[in-house]
Design a protein around this nucleic acid. Structure first.
Length: 577
DNA sequence: GCCGTTTTCGGCCCGACTGTTTTCAGTCG
């Protein structure tokens, strides 16, 4: 893990310990923000720490945090963290993740009981220690017990590849109920995040009660977490939480904006609203008359509420698509026109039964035509990928001939004979130049040695993108979300080399990969590198992964101009030549 | 702890729901 990622975790721990100790909530928030800034930071942490004022120039990092970061760079520890650790049992941090337990309660456990970790909590529930605390009734304790058991076995976040199809299924089922006028998803799912904490649904309907009832009693619901007049939360049997909110149709824009987030984007919007003597909440943008009671409860008409566009316009801001509403996205700057799924006209990285795919060439061509593509590249594995049945030079030559044969026999789509060539640890490729030269398209990808140090990874990938026969750098880091971190190269250096040599960087659209990731796409855009979004399809169903790649591209600010999959066939072919 | 077109002090987003409590604290998103 890179230094800034390790340090981001340290600040996360500081924030959690401060929270338990009862520190000022704004100080806790500020510390959490430092963690997020470090998490997102791309560049050389030690270099920026050594530059006077360098750290302080980052939004959210002030003098005090900069000092701590420099201390960590020099000594490998932070005094404040060591002090906190010596005072507060670290096992308490694991209690903050249990739904229903917040900082106040965990702080109480620390000061007033002998419960210092999850095992202690389980004991305290049984032996009555918990029940002795104020405001701890039977129901609260039962909820905590349930959350504790759930937290012990649940995965942290759900892949968008699981959450999005599930959400679409829910929309179909709930949307067909009588009296439901509209239903849609919001939240991190709508922003296209690679993993989803829970699914947020927004509905407009004639009568909320029957919808809430159907929702909370649906098959697959293992627990009803909340059920009110306008909001309900359930947990499904696979552990995913779904929140449903009932919205007034006139205020759907404000609700969309509010529940899509991100939280940080909303906070920025509220700040700007305040500066204009306005008040923004999930019911609309209102004039701020200084009264405490929410304006919508006093019959005050909103200035804007029906659409998100109205609200941005009323704040004199450009519209931001959901994918560009993260903390890192500047709010005043108009976003570029983003690539859409409809722009995608080809897939340039797919596999067949020749290596480890499930379909023969002709069947893959059929699927690509169903997607409306003008071109499909067949790129089976190279010889080093033994586990994936990689092709020897001899088998590759036969395969190329077979691809050209199917291409000639299949009007309506152009098939490219390519290869996904292994990039060896030293940056050399798995086939000789004369072999690569006869291919229509070369995707070069790292598959092994994915734990090599960042400097080696950087030169390895720069060597690949600089190679005269390489068109696309496939899944550049080799990461698998939640399973392995992959390479951590200096992505700006790789992107600059790619831009210089006219090589495209891939967004591998498989939802387990999404590699490049969103923040790397941003760097590629800034460096002027081209992007190629490919599904790496090994089966018919994998062609549908394209949308996850497009979402990731959009989160990085990708335009159709800079994405070679959006180009017309002749332009693409000219570029390949 | 951070920040500044109300600037070096005094703020820091806002509402729903639950459970325990008789008016609201704590948690969540």
């Amino acid at each position: 893990m890179s230094d800034q990622r390790v340090l981001a975790k340290e600040f996360e721990i500081i924030a959690a310990l401060l929270e338990i100790s009862g520190a000022n909530a704004f100080r806790v928030n500020a510390t959490k923000k430092v963690s997020r800034v470090l998490q997102d930071f791309e560049g050389d942490l030690h270099a920026i720490a050594a530059t006077p004022g360098g750290l302080e120039a980052l939004d959210g990092i002030g003098k005090s945090s900069a000092e701590k970061i420099r201390q960590w760079c020099d000594a490998g520890t932070i005094d404040e963290l060591e002090t906190l650790r010596s005072e507060i049992p670290p096992g308490l941090i694991g209690l903050l993740d249990i739904s229903g337990l917040g900082p106040k309660t965990v702080g109480r456990l620390w000061r007033e009981t002998d419960i210092v970790d999850r095992a202690g909590l389980a004991r305290g529930i049984e032996d009555g220690t918990l029940a002795a605390l104020p405001r701890m009734g039977a129901k609260t304790i039962a909820n905590i017990k349930d959350s504790l058991e759930f937290a012990e076995q649940a995965a942290e976040r759900t892949s968008i590849g699981i959450a999005l199809p599930l959400a679409e299924l829910l929309l179909e089922e709930l949307g067909s109920l009588p009296g439901v006028n509209s239903i849609e998803y919001a939240g991190s799912l709508r922003r296209g995040c690679e993993t989803i904490g829970d699914i947020d649904l927004l509905a407009t309907c004639d009568d909320p009660a029957p919808l809430i009832e159907t929702f909370t009693q649906a098959p697959g619901v293992t627990k009803v977490l909340a059920s009110g007049d306008t909001k309900a939360s359930i947990r499904l049997k696979d552990g995913i939480q779904v929140d449903l909110r009932i919205i007034d149709a006139e205020a759907i824009g404000a609700a969309r904006m509010y529940f899509t987030g991100s939280k940080e984007h909303n906070v920025k919007l509220r700040h700007l609203a305040q500066a204009r003597s306005l008040r923004l909440n999930e019911y609309g943008l209102f004039p701020d008359d200084g009264q405490q009671e929410p304006p919508q409860q006093r019959g005050i008409a909103p200035i804007a509420a029906a659409t998100e566009e109205d609200i941005y316009a009323a704040l004199d801001l450009p519209f931001h698509p959901p994918e560009l509403r993260e903390e890192r996205d500047a709010i005043e700057i108009p976003p570029p026109p983003l690539l859409t799924l409809a722009d995608i006209a080809c897939d340039l990285h797919t596999h067949t039964t020749a290596s480890d795919g499930h379909l023969p060439i002709a069947a893959m061509a059929e699927e690509a035509m169903r997607c409306g593509y003008h071109t499909l590249a067949i790129t089976d594995h190279s010889r080093s990928s033994v586990q994936a049945n990689g092709l020897s030079v001899e088998r590759l030559l036969e395969h190329v001939a077979a691809i050209r044969e199917v291409d000639a026999a299949t009007p309506g789509i152009r098939l490219l004979a390519g290869s996904e060539v292994d990039i060896h640890a030293d940056g050399s490729l798995d086939y000789d130049d004369d072999v690569l030269a006869m291919l229509d398209l070369v995707v070069a990808s790292p598959h092994a040695a994915l734990r090599q140090p960042p400097e080696e990874a950087t030169s390895r990938l720069i060597a690949a993108v600089s190679h005269r026969h390489v068109h696309v750098l496939g899944h550049p880091t080799g990461r698998m979300i939640g399973r392995r971190p992959g390479l951590e190269p200096d992505m700006r250096a790789v992107a600059e080399a790619a831009a210089k040599h006219g090589t495209a960087l891939e967004i591998n659209a498989n939802p387990s990969r999404l590699d490049l990731r969103d923040r790397h796409v941003r760097i590629a855009m800034e460096s002027g590198a081209l992007i190629s979004i490919n599904t790496d399809a090994h089966a018919a169903a994998h062609f549908a992964f394209m949308r996850y790649g497009v979402l990731t591209g959009r989160r990085g600010g990708l335009t159709s101009e800079q994405c070679i999959n959006a180009w017309q066939a002749d332009r693409l072919l000219a570029w390949l030549d």
